Computed example of a mutant assay.
Amino acid sequence: MSAVPGSEERFKESLELAVKYAKELSCSKIHILAGLKPTSSPKGNVRCFNKMEQTYISNLKYACSRLKKDNILGVIEPICPQAVPNYFLDSFYQAMKYIKLINEPNLKLQLDFYHLQRLHGNITENLNMFFPYVGHIQISQVPDRHEPDSDGELDYHYIFNLLQSLEYSGFIGLEYKPKGDTIDGLKWLKTFPNCSIG
């Protein structure tokens, strides 16, 4: 709800609860969700977008200040319309604009390859461009959002090698829908060197 005008106090309360859970679980990152654009607003309504953008920037600044007290990283994630229609943050370039504008070390990009491919494609060039701002990575196959080794548009052997060459050392979240049983769906890890569940 961080981009939803009128929800500022609710956002702050929600953030406090998230911090409480993060501290109890020794979690060092919190995903700050932007929220949805109103469906009643005509597509391309500039005034509505500008108001949401102002709210989003203000709330992100507040979140950075609040999270800094507990040494927590805030991450923002662009989400494609196929996954969440009308989501406010629907472009990686838009996300980078806010990260650079706010310019706080504890605000980073949550890069989900599913959304990157759906929104922009051009994985190699975009990963190289966005990588210095990445705080967390998530994966799934495109278009069906199944296991990374399932049939689809993305070659995760290539992507993992690219991440290794960029010296990515963080966790990679498995945000996919298993084609069948969850445990059976994890067998793909055996075919990828240096992959394990942490």
Rank of each mutant, 00 (worst) to 15 (best):
D144I: 05
E24A: 15
N59W: 04
P38C: 12
L154E: 05
D90Q: 14
N59E: 11
N128E: 14
T55G: 07
G74E: 06
H31A: 06
Y87P: 05
K68S: 15
I32N: 10
L162M: 09
Q54W: 02
N86M: 12
K61C: 03
Y93E: 10
I102C: 08
Q54R: 05
Q94T: 05
I137K: 00
F131L: 11
Y98M: 09
F113W: 07
L67H: 09
L119K: 10
I30H: 00
P85M: 04
Y98D: 04
E104W: 07
H146S: 05
Q138S: 15
A83T: 12
P143S: 04
K68G: 00
I57C: 03
L119C: 09
L73D: 01
E147I: 04
Y114L: 07
V134D: 05
P81T: 00
I123E: 01
Q110S: 13
F160S: 01
P143E: 05
L116A: 11
D155E: 09
V142K: 10
N126E: 14
V84R: 14
V75F: 08
L36R: 14
E53D: 09
I30W: 09
P38M: 05
Y98L: 11
Q82V: 14
G152A: 01
L33G: 08
E53H: 11
F131C: 01
M96V: 03
D70G: 04
I32G: 06
I76P: 01
I57T: 10
L36C: 02
G35A: 03
Y158L: 12
L119P: 04
Y158C: 04
I72G: 02
Q82D: 14
Y62W: 13
K68H: 10
I159T: 02
Q141G: 08
L60G: 02
P81S: 13
Y93T: 03
A22I: 09
F160Y: 03
E125F: 01
L36Y: 09
G121M: 13
A34L: 03
V46N: 11
Y56I: 00
S41Y: 13
H115E: 12
D155L: 11
T55C: 15
M52V: 00
A63G: 04
L119E: 02
M96A: 03
A95Y: 06
V75N: 02
L25W: 09
R66Q: 11
D70W: 06
G44N: 07
Q138P: 03
I99W: 11
M52H: 13
Y114I: 01
